[in-house]
Simulated scan of single mutants.
Amino acid sequence: MTVFLFLSLLLNVLIGCRSYLKLRRSRKLFSDRYAMVISMSSSMVLSLVLSLLCSFILPLSFSTLTILSTIVGGTIGIIFGVMVKLHSVLSGFFGGTMGGITGSMVGAVVLDPTLCGLPSINSSILFTNTITFSIFGTIISLISFWIIIYSIKV
């Protein structure tokens, strides 16, 4: 399971790098509003999926993982915001931060459902939920970045 989660994390990092390079090449075509939407949505999706996968992989406490995910998400947002347009840095930062916090919370609930008052689960269902959420996150990442890249062509 750990190898699958690492491969999924690597795939999402490659998706993020590919979309960054594609958006960087065509950044002169963006209006200010479109640049803000792109920086917010791309940083939010990427940081959400990366923090979800990191919460499955890293054996850290919830507070440490949340702080780490917030910092990584904010950094991703700043990178995408600077790349697209300079005045969309703040929207990218907020999108990345919110994605990082949301991903760490979803990961914590998947690993321990009693946090939300749900009944506890056994290890086989935990394994299934972890794999399901990692596959779902990767699919969401692929679809959202495909839509962003497609919207440049239209």
Rank of each mutant, 00 (worst) to 15 (best):
V3L: 10
F4Q: 12
L7R: 03
L7T: 02
I15H: 02
G16V: 04
G16F: 15
C17L: 13
Y20F: 14
L21N: 12
L21E: 11
K22Q: 07
R24G: 13
F30E: 10
A35Y: 04
V37M: 11
I38M: 10
V45N: 02
V45S: 02
S47A: 15
L48T: 01
L48M: 13
L50P: 03
S51W: 06
L52Q: 07
C54N: 10
C54H: 02
F56N: 00
P59F: 05
F62I: 08
L65Y: 00
I67L: 13
L68T: 07
L68W: 02
V72T: 11
V72G: 06
V72F: 12
T75A: 11
I79M: 15
K85M: 06
K85I: 05
V89H: 05
S91D: 07
T97M: 13
I101A: 10
I101Q: 02
I101M: 11
G103N: 00
S104D: 03
G107L: 10
A108M: 10
D112V: 08
D112Y: 07
P113H: 03
T114N: 07
L118W: 05
N122G: 13
S123Y: 07
S123T: 09
S124Y: 06
I125C: 03
I125L: 15
F127H: 08
T128W: 09
N129E: 05
T132N: 12
I135P: 02
F136P: 00
G137S: 14
G137H: 12
T138G: 14
I140Q: 01
S144R: 04
F145R: 10
W146R: 12
W146C: 08
I147R: 06
I148N: 04
I148D: 05
Y150E: 08
K153Y: 08
